[in-house]
Amino acid sequence: MNIFRFAGDMTHLISILVLLLKIYATKSCSGISLKTQELYAIVFVARYLDLFTDFISVYNTVMKLVFIGCSLAIVWCMRLHRVVRRTYNKDVDTFRHYFLVLGCFLLALFVHEKFTFQEVLWAFSIYLEAVAILPQLVLLQRSGNVDNLTVQYVFFLGAYRAFYILNWIYRYLTEPHFGRWIASVAGLVQTALYADFFYYYFISWKNNAKLQLPA
């Protein structure tokens, strides 16, 4: 494992911990898109089915279990927790995320490495992860005034994507047979979605001001 991959995994983990911390400490999920969280839960469950069939390392297994567990816990909190669920911005979180699920599944049926149950679900999870942030970005933009922890959450998620791209470039250059075309193209799309957010993030950081997204 190279340093970029590790940094990517850690920023991914931090983003989820920041989100859990926000929900736990403030007993509020305002500014967080339940749609995006549901999509991530689907992504992790679909991709990590290989927990039952393949063993790669203790690190991989533990991280997969943590990601599945945390994403399900977040969805549970936002939907069912007595206090937290009342803070959910239901009216602005209106993205039709079922269309994303359907579109990604159809794409995975046609574009995959092998036509097996696990490979199609793997491709599906890669495509869905690429677009899963969209409801969250739309919610950020609509609500305009966003709290700091939510901004940090999106920032760390974006950082994870950026590190993974560096990781793929590194692996492509150092491993003779490394080819991950489906994931690399989807990863580029996903990272590009964050470009706008990062632009405004750095502007607010430079001016030492609160993040403001244009309406």
């Binding site: 991959r5 995994d9 991914h12 290989d50 393949d54 790669i56 390392s57 991989n60 991280m63 997969k64 990601f67 490495e113 793997w122 993974y164 990781n167 793929w168 692996r171 491993e175 047979h177 490394f178 080819g179 991950r180 994931a183």
Partner: peptide
């Protein structure tokens, strides 16, 4: 295999 196709990643 798993490593060549990047499925050793998360």
């Amino acid at each position: 295999d798993k490593q060549d196709s990047g499925k050793d990643e998360l």
